[in-house]
Design a protein around this nucleic acid. Sequence first.
DNA 1: TTTTTTTACGCAATCGTTCCCGTAGAAAGT
DNA 2: ACTTTCTACGGGAACGATTGCGTAAAAAAA
Lengths: 344, 344
Amino acid sequence: MKFEAATIKDIAKALGLSTSTVSRALRDSYEISPETKKLVLEYAEKINYHPNPIALSLKERRSRTIGVIVCEIANSFFSQVINGIESIAYNNGYNVIIAQSRESFDREMLNLQYLTSRSIDGLIISVSTETTDISYLKDLNKKGMPIVFFDRIVSDIDTHKVIVDNYTGAYNATSHLIKSGYRNIAAISNPEMLSISKERLAGYRKALADNGIEVDESLLKYCKHGGMINDEVNTVLRELLSRKNKPDAIFTTADKLTTGCLRILKENGLSVPGDIGLLGFSNNDLTELFDPALSVIKQPAFEMGEIATGYLLQLIESKHPVTDFETKVLPTELFIRNSTRRKD
Amino acid sequence: MKFEAATIKDIAKALGLSTSTVSRALRDSYEISPETKKLVLEYAEKINYHPNPIALSLKERRSRTIGVIVCEIANSFFSQVINGIESIAYNNGYNVIIAQSRESFDREMLNLQYLTSRSIDGLIISVSTETTDISYLKDLNKKGMPIVFFDRIVSDIDTHKVIVDNYTGAYNATSHLIKSGYRNIAAISNPEMLSISKERLAGYRKALADNGIEVDESLLKYCKHGGMINDEVNTVLRELLSRKNKPDAIFTTADKLTTGCLRILKENGLSVPGDIGLLGFSNNDLTELFDPALSVIKQPAFEMGEIATGYLLQLIESKHPVTDFETKVLPTELFIRNSTRRKD
DNA sequence: TTTTTTTACGCAATCGTTCCCGTAGAAAGT
DNA sequence: ACTTTCTACGGGAACGATTGCGTAAAAAAA
């Protein structure tokens, strides 16, 4: 079963013209007489002719397609970013192919190879929690593949990047916790190698230090798979809650960790914020409906996608190799709700 | 700035062979001597050769790409379906292009034209709330484009379909509301033209009837844009709540409507289930964290994606035109939580 | 009338790959 | 020694569209 589209040849044959003439007529070339143009255009319309983009891609050696790799589209943050990406891409006649790494380096590599072999013109990526070996990305970039990083960036590759001010976001969030009376604040984070983890934990540390609270490293927990595996959040929470000086609040650095934490705290019969405060990064639109309504740090996800795509198209369409790269840093927004409202 | 990949010609030139020989060596043809094969394979590996899929697509007149149109990927149900689609597609060497209609018929048409002009081999679609004119889809199907519908199907086009038993799902949900003591049960739904709306409302009606409750048509409200516009949920809720005999429970037939309802009820200071019960279709994984934990009807979204893709690949790869079509009907699952737990 | 210019088209190469043919040269059969 | 059969490879068309170049015929200029 195959879908056969009309080609320029069909038009040429039907009208007794050459394919060149038809092609030129369709593109409104000055060398074609008005009558012929009219003839061709009308017939093309009649048989519903559309140029074959694959043939065009082959000829022009560009696919007008950009690849996007995120860990998962079911994550609100990433789906919002993707919406931003698509809005700009489609407006510029570009197509978007989305691939999910699911926080696995192997899957990320597979997707990367798949996308590049599919002749994408450029790549927008937020790396997985497992990604430490960036040689493939580096090679790709060196060979001329335009790449833009967002959110989870890698510092070693020189290209455009779009992030938020993770440090300040985490600093303000932690400060808010302290101001609310919490002292023994644990942090649950993605692996430390991740750029966002580093920055967010740095902000957390600084806020504690600025308020005269010593950083207790044993209150810092990492989830290797970014909470993709529910059990790992469970494990670190059990560790934290079995301490003699239990934390009175938890700061989480990722969406999945934030909601995962709340789920497990509730499953364990702990009341939030009664027994323990909770605040974390999350772009989920429904956190205000939670019990308790969650205090969260939000990123301007849609805008990040827009900016990243703007950067990428700039790289793709630049005639000369670009050597001057920008890193756009956007502000985060802190939403204070019940999960950090201490009853005292 | 352009990314130039190695071609078969590069190999041919470097080794003093013809492109035909290289091509055959790479495909392990019997007409090529073992020594030549080894030579070619090693060199190809060395320069990291990958066949250009665009050239292949042009030659084979298939893109190994399937198009997916949903209303939005940020919706849990659809992102889960997409995960199911991708898992099967990738395992079979197919690529997936996702497009969002955002409940707009115009956008759906644009995406449809875009995808077909991008030479997709097949299409998986759940139509928008606005879609009534299906002539384009019909034409496409007639011309040989393999199409599989899921969730929001159209009865007029004969092809494979994947749905859930919406009728029974809604029947059981409504029965549960009645058993819980609710009598004056309103329903908020997507437009009636949508297959799922029809079926779900039919289940709702039958459950009322079977329990001796007369269906009050004025308790049935429709949201034209499926809750994409927050205001429309607001409007219908205001209408319902300003009645003299207010509904004591609400049954919603779509994810966005369910969460939207809860948000507005809370904004209006109404307690759920104290003042009003709430139960609806939703595939959101976080509804149990809500205040109150939401009673929901879930669809086996991932499985639906898998099955739809299986059907589509079957259509694409079938040598002969397929005339015998299946409609797979999967069961829904009812989760009873606090939003329907009447305090009495 | 002859030459030049313009108009309006066709031919053929190109993109990367596959595949149907054709064919040297070696091996095998007579 | 001569014919036949393999073996191992090359030539070239094809997929659909674009585009530089060449060119008849018509129009304009000489």
